[in-house]
Design a protein around this nucleic acid. Structure first.
Length: 184
DNA sequence: TGGCCGATATGCT
DNA sequence: GCATATCGGCCAA
């Protein structure tokens, strides 16, 4: 059990490796947990906050293994983990398959369907009860991350909702999962 | 200091 | 599939 637990060194790796490696891991926060079924990698590409939000995005270059939370479209918050000890990077968590604390997630989201609880970056933050105040903290201070028990197939494709660098296949998801924010 | 622009979610057609 | 609410971050002036 504890052998599945990821350590801080996990985040030191290149961003694409971290992103791919996060798919299938279980994210634990408080009484709730979910399997990460979708995430996206950002580095110093034109769609990255390292470029478009220079001040906020600096954390992508200066840290790894830290929480980066930003506000999106006024009302939603999105959760990232910074990566790559030698370079610029962060991974945006986009969807979870809820596995623990479903009732609490339902209450927070105000709906029942498990597939709608955390199938989007803003949704998962709300469902898991993740506070924006966690911004800047060490990932493993606020979360527990458990590696998958069995290997799984990970697919990749273009990232969602961006207008620049649309061609980069830096979105990663668990093959066949019905809990992703959208189907390829 | 003003104006533009989203790494979105939701509801309606 | 499409419109739109909503507001912080950013940069030009």
């Amino acid at each position: 059990m504890s052998s599945r637990r990821l350590g801080p060194a996990f985040f030191a790796a290149p961003t694409l490796d971290v992103a791919r490696g996060l798919v299938g891991c279980t994210l634990v926060h408080g009484r709730c947990a979910g399997v990460i079924v979708e995430c996206e990698a950002y580095t110093d590409d034109p769609a990255s906050h390292y470029v478009t939000r220079r001040r906020q995005g600096r954390v992508m270059a200066e840290t790894h293994g830290r929480i980066y939370i930003y506000r999106s479209y006024g009302v939603h918050h999105c959760l990232n983990f910074t990566t790559d000890q030698h370079g610029v990077g962060a991974v945006l968590l986009r969807a979870l398959e809820p596995v623990q604390g479903l009732d609490l997630m339902r209450r927070r989201r105000g709906l029942d369907d498990p597939r709608a609880l955390a199938s989007g970056p803003g949704k998962l933050v709300e469902a898991m009860g993740i506070s924006p105040r966690l911004d800047g903290r060490a990932v493993l201070d606020a979360f527990e991350l458990l590696a998958p028990e069995t290997p799984l197939s990970v697919d990749c494709g273009p990232r969602v909702g961006i207008s620049r660098a649309k061609d980069l296949p830096w979105r990663f998801w668990a093959r066949g999962s019905r809990f992703v924010s959208r189907r390829s």
